[in-house]
Design a protein around this nucleic acid. Structure first.
Lengths: 215, 215
DNA sequence: CGGTTATCGATATTTTTATATCTATCACGA
DNA sequence: TCGTGATAGATATAAAAATATCGATAACCG
């Protein structure tokens, strides 16, 4: 629909963040051979309000049937299309430390169409090592690799103080988006998309919740 | 201030999420021997609007001086107090897979007062292994360990299908808060705090941004 | 076949968050 | 010593998101 016509809606970020949870539940219905799922069903599973879920689902463009809910396979297709998990893309991972290695071993990415074409690191001791099936390559080969293979996505798991210099190489190589797991704020040209995952933000919220709850 | 009097403000979650970034920058000023930092400084570093930063800083209770900014050490103390990084707490980590191991190796937690007292796993092959200085212990000893050591925090890095049964043990043992890295939605009593970190939410937002940008 | 009811979809309201505007302050340089 | 201007802090406005309300629909049941 929106993809076919070339029109792209603007989706609210909070809604996008909820889509993967929705998808997970809808898929479990699909595996169970259930054909319809209602906003109420999803809301109950997630502890959300059903109106919120219904509004989100309305944005996917899928029409529901009163008293029945939404067709499970339609929802799955629509959500996967919105979050781009219906097509394959190649990525590089930069920085094979603890977190980088963990991400390389995470099977969830390939199931969502994200495949690691290579992993890079500066540490000479790591070069040539195999991490979850991926051979670690030296950083100096990265630029050419990205350019030649037309890689669009980089997952950045280098230490904060190495982040910007790494990013400069990535940008120079023509990368389109950087999924940044370092706490550093990246300076990139406007055409390059960045998405910051800040583990410490989550910890902060968690700790504040804990303190508030225990009053 | 708010801690001393026992009064706890309600902080907006988006503001809490920004605090760690603020702290990081303010600390860099502190290391540089700079005594004052302005909202404008922080805003420039992060690409934010200075008014937003100023409003956030106002909520910390620290007073700024016109033309000078805020005292660096006061801000650091205030933010650390709000996010609870000024005191120590013990945690257990459950599930020593890729992500669990990565978190065990992450030094950032101890620097923020979170110390892993133990790591648990069900896999017999992993029991007794040392992961980043932590010996993996069998799951069946977990409940007593938590109860006896009065552990309040659990970091949950088990697969989704094992999440709820693990959580039941944690709750039974008297855990106060669960930092959940599994995609499962946890059912816990109201007194138990949960904080869900959903990697796929971030990926979804990232992919949507990429698709939107490339139009 | 007709009433009942769960559900959708639309609309309205409230709350939260972000952004803009304005005034007072006070370090700094002339 | 006196403007100047960067900055805090307060207030006002706008935007975004969550939540509530309500009529319409159609499967289900008697």
């Amino acid at each position: 629909m929106e993809i076919a016509t070339g029109i792209r809606k603007k989706y609210p970020v909070p809604m996008i963040r909820r889509l993967p949870s929705y998808l997970r539940i809808i898929k479990s219905y699909s595996y169970g051979g259930i054909e319809y799922i209602s906003a109420t069903d999803i809301a109950n599973e997630l502890g959300y309000d059903s109106v919120k879920v219904r509004k989100d689902l309305a944005l996917t463009g899928v029409c529901g049937k009163p008293r029945m809910g939404y067709k499970v396979d339609e929802l799955i297709r629509a959500i996967r299309s919105i979050v781009g998990w219906d097509k394959n893309s190649e990525a590089v991972l930069v920085g094979t430390g603890c977190l980088g290695s963990a991400l390389l071993g995470f099977t969830g990415f390939s199931r969502r169409g994200i495949n690691f074409a290579a992993a890079f690191d500066v540490d000479p001791h790591k070069i040539g090592m195999t991490v979850h099936g991926h051979t670690v390559m030296p950083m100096r080969g990265m630029k050419n690799f990205i350019t030649e293979r037309k890689i669009e996505i980089a997952v950045l798991t280098v230490p904060a103080d190495a982040a910007q210099e790494t990013v400069d190489i990535l940008v120079d190589a023509g990368i389109k988006g950087i999924w940044n797991f370092s706490p550093a704020i990246l300076k990139v040209p406007a055409r390059v998309v960045t998405q910051n995952e800040n583990l410490m933000s989550g910890l902060a919220v968690f700790m504040v919740k804990m303190a508030t709850e225990s009053v």
